[in-house]
């Protein structure tokens, strides 16, 4: 995969920022407007998939290695579990919305409101985005290696940090 033509590369390098910002907006305002962690995470993953399709696999591999992506994936899962356990510590039950009930009620219809729901949205968005990026990255890497001849596939896979993380 060497990437596409100059036109596609230029346009996607402009558009990628907008897509990434839109994903962050969808995640942060998930408790006020339609959207939320799931949709925003998939949008974040698709911005990197656009880069992967336009610039080739190596470019994305240098910017966001799969080891970093798997660490982000685990970080998202850890944050979501941490929100649950903090609810157990401060509120008495798992997943209780302790921030809204006691510490930081906020005003409704504002960005800082609803307690732990924005935090959970962030964690879910991080988790979904990183894991879907990892899956598509693994599919791309496999196709790259599978296009070689069957005899030398092991040697060619040795040089690239493939899916073993």
């Amino acid at each position: 995969m060497k990437g596409m033509t100059v036109i596609v590369k230029t346009v996607s390098s402009w558009v990628k920022v907008l897509i990434f910002l839109f994903g962050i907006y969808i995640i942060l305002f998930g408790h006020l407007t339609p959207g939320g962690g799931f949709a925003g995470g998939v949008i974040l993953a698709s911005s990197y998939v656009l880069l992967m399709l336009a610039f080739g696999r190596r470019f994305v591999e240098e910017n966001l290695p799969s080891s970093v992506a798997s660490k982000l994936d685990c970080l998202g899962a850890f944050l979501f579990a941490m929100v649950a356990i903090l609810g157990l510590v401060f509120g008495g039950t798992l997943f209780v919305n302790f921030l809204y009930q006691e510490y930081l009620p906020g005003t409704p219809f504002e960005l800082v409101s609803a307690g732990t729901i924005p935090l959970s949205n962030l964690a879910i968005g991080l988790k979904v985005g990183a894991s879907l990026f990892l899956v598509i990255f693994a599919l791309t890497v496999f196709r790259y290696d599978g296009s070689r001849k069957p005899g030398d596939s092991d040697e060619s896979a040795g040089g690239t940090p493939a899916t073993r993380e």
Partner: peptide
């Protein structure tokens, strides 16, 4: 349904990877 849609994407990736491996 919101959770089910995202799970369907994950399971689609799993099924497709099984297909590709079988083709290889």
């Amino acid at each position: 349904v919101l959770t089910s849609i995202v799970i369907s994407l994950g399971s689609l990736a799993l099924l497709i990877s099984i297909c590709i491996r079988t083709y290889e």
